[in-house]
Design a binder for these strands. Structure first.
Lengths: 109, 109
DNA sequence: TCCTTTGTTCGTAATTTCACGAACTACGAA
DNA sequence: TTCGTAGTTCGTGAAATTACGAACAAAGGA
């Protein structure tokens, strides 16, 4: 059994980062971290994409585990997935809070 | 001129997040934040990908502005891009440090 | 029951990503 | 000048991403 070079945490974090790697999705996450929940329709009104595309982005956030939905007929209420959001928070905070040893390159090829 | 819904900061952050959205690239970034610099050859020895693929990943990190290279013939020394790393650090830290109002969904559709 | 609202799913298309091997470039050493 | 090392670039292909509109499903209200 070879030692895994890429850790489980790195894989998890990459998964979260990937989900965050689109302005629309980042917007949704930031909104949800500020106002606790929202509806797809509200987003659809302000965002410059059609609702089916928005639905796809929401699905990606759901698949990554960052948000979750709840039926509130006829709408669906979205909010952050508490547990995974906390994990992402920890992973990213740890990642960026490491004491960094930067040897600046003089040139930039 | 319509008010931009997606902010410049969100776009920048999404760009960084996208670059971080692959385990290999996250591994490289984490290594560089720990040991100040590295060479492509060192990475190639431990990572389970061929060097041309690694080169592509390094290029993506370069294009995103997170790392930079310096010729140290016959090799190339890579290190973090100090300025942009700091920016990413700030963006992500702020993003995750916001006081969060989570209304947990009971169900998860 | 039929209509309206809300949102998802499907089909499609263009683009990007990810990976590989082969070919190429740059440069120091023999 | 020729060779070897280090790394990038090119060509390729498979898969994923991003976006759209049309069609569909669910559920409350007329």
């Amino acid at each position: 059994m070879p030692t895994e070079i890429i850790s489980k945490e790195q894989k998890k974090m990459a998964r979260y980062a990937k989900a965050m790697g689109h302005p629309i999705r980042l917007y949704v996450l930031e909104l949800l971290s500020k106002q606790s929940c929202c509806y797809s329709g509200d987003l659809s009104e302000v965002l410059p994409i059609v609702k089916s595309t928005l639905s796809q982005h929401l699905k990606e956030l759901k698949d990554a585990g960052l948000i979750q939905g709840e039926i509130e007929a006829p709408r669906i209420k979205y909010c952050l997935n508490k547990e995974n959001w906390k994990e992402a928070q920890e992973l990213f905070t740890r990642f960026f809070q490491q004491p960094i040893k930067i040897t600046d390159c003089k040139t930039n090829i």
